[in-house]
Nucleic acid binder design. Sequence first.
DNA 1: TCAAAAGTGTTAAGTTTACACCCATGA
DNA 2: TCATGGGTGTAAACTTAACACTTTTGA
Lengths: 212, 212
Amino acid sequence: MSNYSSHPQFFVSVDCIVFGFNKGSLQVLIHQRPYSPGFGEMSLIGGFVEKEESIDISARRILKEFTGLDSVYMKQLATFGEVERDPGERVISILYYVLINVDKYDNNLSEIHNAKWVDVNTIPNLCFDHNKMVEMARTSLGAAIKVEPIAKYLLPKYFTLSHLQALHESIFNTPIDKRNFRRSIAEKDYIKATDMIDKDSSKRGATLYTFD
Amino acid sequence: MSNYSSHPQFFVSVDCIVFGFNKGSLQVLIHQRPYSPGFGEMSLIGGFVEKEESIDISARRILKEFTGLDSVYMKQLATFGEVERDPGERVISILYYVLINVDKYDNNLSEIHNAKWVDVNTIPNLCFDHNKMVEMARTSLGAAIKVEPIAKYLLPKYFTLSHLQALHESIFNTPIDKRNFRRSIAEKDYIKATDMIDKDSSKRGATLYTFD
DNA sequence: TCAAAAGTGTTAAGTTTACACCCATGA
DNA sequence: TCATGGGTGTAAACTTAACACTTTTGA
């Protein structure tokens, strides 16, 4: 049998950068910490890994708690293990980023958790190393969205190309040429036009698209 | 003060995929496990994170133990936290890949640790999820080497373009056109020709190049 | 009737790929 | 003299970037 008992054990936490696309821009869910250390400071959502729970399952449990959502798109990014990174006790933290459809977010939970959505381009000061984590996640999301159909998890089932473009512009924080953008989308076989028209966001009406 | 004590603690280990470039191909350092679980099976090198030691420092300590080298190029890749991944006890493992110059590797350590170098394209069965880890590392190394001057850490100070090409071919496990390869290298400003000639690997002699 | 968002093509620049022969030298 | 690895250029295909006007319709 194994004998690992000469080695120390550590608290392990999961931190999640929850991205949502709201009012034309990419936002991140943060909340005010209700406990020390960092009491009252703004923080990513997170929690501790429990016994008999894989780190992925742990992330899902924490997300359920903070968003009310059961199945979300999650991707592990990195692990932070500096000895002093949490000023309370030593905690090794595993970072995930998470994509959710804000229409399904349970707004009641904002009050319970003192949570709010903030624009990814104007993130306030967060506790510990959390600002660094957000930048890392945004870079990674940018690389992924060029190549994988993950915008699906941020958008409603049907969306206009202007919405999709606003999402990309928000992630890269830069304007994109409309014609080039539409061509690049037309080349992706996982995004399809429907025969529905959205009349809410323009007078003329815009074709609604969907994934797959 | 913090009160984390209601949460469980875990063993945390570091696993390292040590890459070296030897005899024209990319190799990985593995060793035979001298303890259970997995006794006698081949394994990546690794060890436990200790108290007051950041995970990066932990990786450096373990590398020193297995290679004799103090400063190596290291990159954190991912963390594995399935409950049953280690059949002994639950261990959360943080994966790094590491690039070393095999000329500086202390060969005496191979005997002490039952270690050996194996070609990245013919890795034997390794214990636990270690084969999966190697594939992940190779993919990540491939993406990085196209863009960053990290071949520096695998090669001697002076090298021929044929050596560098062999390294790329080994990483991608595919032949590369010599003229196209040389053009792409000429465009990188961090690789420079010297006025030295290598007479060892060809009769005619080949220009030696170096990083920066 | 006009403001606001939808929609649509072409050209130039740059990048990537495919491809074959001569050179210098030691054995 | 010949086998071995070193070294070199060009054309076609493809990808990316830059750029402006017309359409529809509700207010």
